[in-house]
Amino acid sequence: MNTPIISNELKLVLEQIIPETDVCFFPVTTHHPSGASFNHWALMPLTEVPCLDLEASEITMWIVPNEIALLYKKLRFLPECLGQRDIVRNTNLTSQILLSNKLKKVIERYSKGNVRLLRDYEIPPSFVL
């Protein structure tokens, strides 16, 4: 499961935007080979929503058949799967976190080039067996 690591600055902004029922922050310390330590936050969405159109996607391997995908050739997302939320984890592919356009703009503004957010048409196929 992928968990983004964010700065304290971004965490403070996100706390103002995302309800505490939708996300949790955990302290993380990273250590540089030089001996320097840096404090960050792990961002974990608390809401999980099925976001894939399983009929239109091309899944090549399943963790749970017809429910949780592992490998794929093509993904199609359900329209409006976020509902009114700004962030959810995709229950059909748990490595994915989906964001609203509003939250995407905020993260891009505060990421300082350390993050790349993909649109659904940019997601490369996984390794196909």
Rank of each mutant, 00 (worst) to 15 (best):
E58W: 01
L129E: 14
V88Q: 07
N92S: 08
R89M: 11
V13T: 09
T60E: 10
V49Y: 06
I18C: 03
V115T: 11
T21Y: 06
K74F: 06
V88E: 12
L82N: 08
G35P: 07
V128Q: 11
A42W: 09
R85S: 09
F26N: 07
K74P: 01
T3P: 00
E122S: 05
E48F: 04
S100I: 05
F26K: 07
P50C: 05
K105A: 14
V64G: 00
L93R: 13
S34Y: 04
S111W: 09
S100M: 03
R85F: 02
V23T: 13
I6R: 04
A42H: 07
L71G: 00
Y72W: 15
A36W: 09
L46E: 14
K73D: 14
S126G: 14
A69Q: 09
V106Y: 11
L129A: 11
N92C: 12
V128E: 13
I59K: 07
V13F: 04
L118P: 05
S111R: 06
L118H: 12
P33G: 07
N92D: 15
T60F: 10
L99S: 03
P19V: 04
V23H: 08
N66E: 15
R116W: 10
L12Y: 07
S111M: 04
T91K: 12
V28T: 06
N66P: 00
K74C: 00
L117V: 07
A56R: 15
P125F: 09
P79L: 04
K73F: 02
H31V: 10
I6W: 11
V88C: 05
L70Y: 14
C24N: 10
M1D: 13
P19G: 08
L118D: 08
Q84R: 11
P4A: 09
A42N: 05
E55N: 07
G35T: 08
T29G: 00
D120K: 13
V128A: 05
L99D: 02
T94G: 03
H31P: 01
D22W: 01
V88S: 04
Y72T: 02
N39L: 03
L14E: 08
W62V: 01
T94S: 09
C24K: 14
V64Y: 13
K11Q: 15
V128M: 06
S126I: 04
V23E: 08
D22G: 01
E48W: 10
M61Y: 13
R109C: 03
H40A: 12
R116H: 13
A42E: 15
A56Y: 09
L52M: 03
E15L: 08
I87G: 03
L118K: 10
N2T: 13
P79M: 03
T47K: 14
E122R: 08
P79D: 11
L43D: 08
K102Y: 14
N66A: 02
V13A: 09
R85I: 00
P50Q: 10
V23M: 12
V106F: 05
T47A: 10
F26S: 06
N114W: 06
D22Q: 10
I18M: 07
F25H: 00
G113T: 02
V128G: 00
L98F: 09
K102G: 02
K73V: 02
L54T: 06
I18R: 06
D120L: 04
E15A: 00
